[in-house]
Simulated assay, not measured.
Amino acid sequence: MEESAARRAQIVAEITAATGIDDGMIERLVGTFYARVREDAVLGPVFEAHVTDWDVHLAQMRLFWSSVTLMSGRYHGRPMPKHLNLPVDARHFDHWLRLFEATAREVCPPAAADYFLERARRIASHLEYGVATRHGASLAPGERFVNPALPAGQVA
């Protein structure tokens, strides 16, 4: 077990050295991004309808990104069930990614932004697949989910 912990610490040190990602950067990215989400015409209403305590949500997102980027193991939630019944589809995930990328590129140095974005794209793809499956869609490789229950012009 000690060898595993030592290896994890070495990997995290390498990630931090290569990207500069630390808890402070995660806090700035999460805070800036979700401030923008709350003001966003597309994403704001979705989040406002489902997030009842923003302080708790932001704390969870900081733990989530710490676990995703620094393998901290701090996040113990289950994100998929929280997303399955949201009124979203590929257009929302694409919009979320564009906003996240713009924020990461502004808030983080390039290596850190790239690192966050690589993971964000995988997460968005995984969540989109889960939402699609929840709606009975069977996606072929590369196919995207468009929720027929949502108005066509709803998402930019």
Score class of each variant (00 low, 15 high):
residue 68 V to K: 04
residue 51 V to S: 13
residue 61 M to T: 02
residue 139 L to F: 07
residue 147 N to E: 05
residue 41 A to S: 15
residue 66 S to Q: 13
residue 32 T to Q: 13
residue 124 A to M: 07
residue 127 L to K: 06
residue 90 A to E: 15
residue 8 R to C: 00
residue 124 A to C: 06
residue 99 L to H: 09
residue 147 N to F: 05
residue 140 A to Y: 00
residue 66 S to E: 08
residue 65 W to M: 08
residue 23 D to C: 05
residue 84 L to N: 07
residue 85 N to W: 10
residue 156 A to G: 10
residue 47 F to D: 12
residue 68 V to D: 02
residue 72 S to V: 04
residue 142 G to H: 09
residue 98 R to F: 06
residue 99 L to S: 02
residue 66 S to K: 12
residue 62 R to T: 04
residue 96 W to S: 03
residue 94 D to Y: 11
residue 125 S to G: 13
residue 14 E to T: 05
residue 109 P to N: 15
residue 33 F to H: 05
residue 90 A to P: 04
residue 68 V to F: 00
residue 80 M to A: 08
residue 9 A to I: 08
residue 74 R to E: 13
residue 132 A to R: 13
residue 30 V to C: 03
residue 86 L to A: 10
residue 51 V to L: 10
residue 102 A to H: 13
residue 84 L to I: 12
residue 124 A to D: 04
residue 46 V to T: 14
residue 126 H to K: 11
residue 65 W to K: 07
residue 14 E to M: 01
residue 136 G to V: 08
residue 152 A to Q: 12
residue 68 V to E: 07
residue 117 L to G: 05
residue 74 R to C: 00
residue 66 S to P: 04
residue 107 V to M: 14
residue 59 A to C: 03
residue 118 E to V: 09
residue 136 G to I: 11
residue 103 T to C: 09
residue 99 L to P: 01
residue 105 R to K: 15
residue 130 G to I: 11
residue 47 F to Q: 15
residue 150 L to A: 06
residue 74 R to A: 05
residue 61 M to C: 00
residue 147 N to D: 12
residue 64 F to S: 03
residue 28 R to F: 00
residue 97 L to W: 04
residue 95 H to N: 13
residue 22 D to C: 08
residue 42 V to R: 13
residue 4 S to P: 01
residue 47 F to M: 13
residue 50 H to W: 08
residue 118 E to M: 11
residue 58 L to D: 06
residue 6 A to W: 09
residue 92 H to Q: 14
residue 12 V to L: 04
residue 2 E to G: 05
residue 87 P to K: 13
residue 107 V to T: 15
residue 64 F to Y: 14
residue 71 M to G: 00
residue 4 S to M: 09
residue 107 V to N: 12
residue 38 R to S: 12
residue 112 A to K: 02
residue 119 R to A: 07
residue 110 P to K: 14
residue 128 E to T: 08
residue 112 A to T: 03
residue 36 R to P: 02
residue 44 G to P: 07
residue 109 P to R: 15
residue 148 P to I: 10
residue 13 A to T: 06
residue 56 V to N: 08
residue 36 R to N: 11
residue 6 A to G: 00
residue 13 A to G: 03
residue 35 A to H: 15
residue 105 R to L: 08
residue 71 M to A: 06
residue 114 D to V: 07
residue 15 I to C: 00
residue 134 R to V: 00
residue 69 T to W: 01
residue 37 V to Q: 06
residue 21 I to K: 02
residue 10 Q to Y: 05
residue 150 L to R: 03
residue 58 L to K: 09
residue 73 G to L: 07
residue 152 A to F: 07
residue 146 V to H: 14
residue 126 H to E: 00
residue 151 P to V: 08
residue 37 V to W: 03
residue 139 L to P: 04
residue 86 L to G: 08
residue 150 L to G: 02
residue 126 H to Y: 10
residue 123 I to R: 03
residue 135 H to A: 09
residue 91 R to V: 06
residue 77 G to H: 11
residue 53 D to T: 13
residue 122 R to T: 06
residue 48 E to I: 09
residue 73 G to E: 12
residue 135 H to T: 05
residue 153 G to V: 01
residue 107 V to Y: 14
residue 51 V to G: 12
residue 67 S to N: 09
residue 116 F to M: 06
residue 125 S to E: 06
residue 70 L to P: 00
residue 89 D to W: 05
residue 141 P to K: 15
residue 2 E to M: 06
residue 81 P to R: 15
residue 147 N to P: 01
residue 98 R to Q: 11
residue 122 R to E: 04
residue 9 A to S: 12
residue 64 F to C: 02
